[in-house]
Design a protein around this nucleic acid. Structure first.
Lengths: 185, 185
DNA sequence: TTGATTGTACCGATCGTTCGGTATAGTATT
DNA sequence: AATACTATACCGAACGATCGGTACAATCAA
C-alpha cells in the first residue's frame, strides 16, 4: 500500500472530488480546483505533480477506499444485525449523493474523455464495487448474486442520472428502495 | 412546429450528436465538431449562429424527435402485436447504444456543466421519455406505471454507465432484460 | 538553516468565436 | 436576354480569453 495521506492533502482531495462530481473532468479547470481547495496553482502542482490527471487518480483512490471501508465493509459485520447495517448503508448513500443532487464520481467520469489511465481506474473501481456487492449477497447465499450485484449498482447510477438531470430527488430515493430489496432478499 | 431540417443540416446534427455522446459537452471542441461534420468552423456558425450551445439544443431536439417517433410510438400500435413491437423496441435500443459501447446523449449531458438552457432541455426530454413509458404501461393497465416507467429508464441509463465504464457489454444487455420484463408484465 | 509549502509572473497551446471574403444559385430589374 | 442584387453555403485566418503547466523567489515550520 502507498503512503498514508496527510490531513491537508485529504482535505484537498475531498474538495477536488466535489468539483469533479459537479462538472466532470474536462470542465474542471485548474482555476476551479484552486479555488475549491483554497490552494494556489503551484501548491496544487506541488501536491499533484502530474496535474489534473494525478488529481483524478488520487480522488479515485480515495473514493475506492471510502467505498471499501466506510460503505461496504460495515455490511459484512454480524449477520444478526443485517437489517440495521443495510439501513445504515442506505442512509450513507443518501448522504454521500446528497439525496440525488450530486452525481457519483465513477458515473460522472464514465462519460467523459479522460486520460486512459483515469478511465482504466474508473473501470477498475466500478468492478470492485460490483464485486463487493456480489460478495455480500453470497454471504447470504442469494441466487444470481452476480446479476443482482450489477443490478444494485445499476439502480444507483441510473437513479442518479434521473435525479441529477431532472432535479427530482424521488428518482434516486426510489432507486434506493430497489437496492434495499436486493440486499435484504 | 419549427421548420423542417434540410438533409445536410440533419447529417451535421447526427455527426455532432456522436461527438457529444462520446466526449460530453465541454470536451467537444469546435475542431472536433468541425472534423466530424466535414464542415469548416465558420460553416458551423452559419448553421448554428449561437455556437456550441445551439448545436447541443439542436441535437437534443433531434433526439427527442427520434425518441418519440422512431422508438416509442411504434410501441403503441396494435396490441395484438405487443410481443413483436417490444422485441423490435429492444433491438432498436441495442443498436442506437451500440450494444452499450456508446452512451445516451441525455445521460452524458446530465453530468456535465452545460449552459442552463441545455441542462433544462436535457431535463425536459428526460421527463418526456419517462412519461412516454408511463403512457405505454397505462395502456395495458399495469399498476404503478409511473414507478415502473422510471425504473425502465433508470435501468437503461444505469446499464449504460456500467457498460461504457467497464467496457463489458453484458451490463447493458442485462439491463435490457429488465426493461423487457417491465414492458411485458 | 534546511526543506516543505506557497504566491507571482509567465509560457505556449488551445479554446470558442468573429471577421472578411469567395462561390453558387436563384430573383428581380431593365 | 443581360445585368444587378440577394440569399445560402462555405472557408481560412485571426481575435481575446483561458487552458494546463513551469520557473523562481519568498515564506513558513522544523
Amino acid at each position: 500500500m502507498s503512503t498514508a495521506l496527510s490531513a491537508s492533502k485529504l482535505k484537498a482531495i475531498e474538495a477536488i472530488a466535489i468539483v469533479f462530481r459537479r462538472v466532470g473532468y474536462s470542465a474542471a479547470s485548474m482555476q476551479m480546483l484552486s479555488e475549491s481547495t483554497n490552494l494556489g496553482k503551484s501548491s496544487l502542482y506541488h501536491h499533484f505533480p502530474d496535474g489534473k490527471q494525478e488529481m483524478a487518480l488520487a480522488v479515485l483512490h480515495w473514493v475506492e477506499d471510502l467505498l471499501q471501508r466506510e460503505l461496504m465493509q460495515p455490511l459484512f459485520v454480524s449477520p444478526e444485525k443485517r437489517q440495521q447495517s443495510v439501513d445504515a448503508f442506505l442512509k450513507k448513500l443518501l448522504e454521500y449523493y446528497q439525496g440525488g443532487r450530486l452525481g457519483c464520481l465513477l458515473g460522472v467520469l464514465s462519460f467523459q474523455d479522460c486520460p486512459q489511465t483515469v478511465s482504466d481506474e474508473v473501470a477498475r473501481v466500478m468492478r470492485v464495487w460490483i464485486q463487493l456487492f456480489e460478495d455480500y449477497l453470497k454471504v447470504y447465499q442469494i441466487k444470481d448474486a452476480k446479476d443482482k450485484a450489477a443490478h444494485a449498482v445499476r439502480a444507483i447510477q441510473g437513479g442518479l442520472i434521473l435525479s441529477v438531470s431532472t432535479q427530482e430527488e424521488d428518482y434516486f430515493s426510489n432507486a434506493l428502495k430497489d437496492v434495499h430489496a436486493i440486499l435484504l432478499e
